[in-house]
Design a protein around this nucleic acid. Sequence first.
DNA 1: ATTCTCACA
DNA 2: TGTGAGGA
Length: 128
Amino acid sequence: MIDKDMPVLTMKIVNQLTHLSARQIRYYEANELISPSRSEGGQRLYSIHDVELIGQVKLLIEKGFNMKKIKEELDRLNRSAQKSADETSPQYIEEDFSTNYIKKVLSGESREIPLTRGDLSRFYKQKK
DNA sequence: ATTCTCACA
DNA sequence: TGTGAGGA
């Protein structure tokens, strides 16, 4: 199982997953919209959860929201969705399709990854 | 080969 | 937001 909060994705992978530039992704971080961890060498390591967040940010930007508004919106969505998530155990990705998919990405076996936010969400399952 | 920070002829 | 410099 891969925990959704495990920091295992490099910038390159996230670029492919989100179709966003490293510049844009770092900019989101500068505005406290995401909080990737760092490797010993200082490289950012993103979790699946981070990627989902980035996808939401991308959508809101396309709707014309500025960074301040997006942060407020994200916080609001988080608070309402967190109440139910807090009581449950950590979320996991299904061991079959999504895990194999992630492994392909991590191994570099899969180069082009035309995924949209909507596509990505289908890889996850809420564990109750 | 990748990513990081900083700064803008 | 892009991009080049300079370093890890």
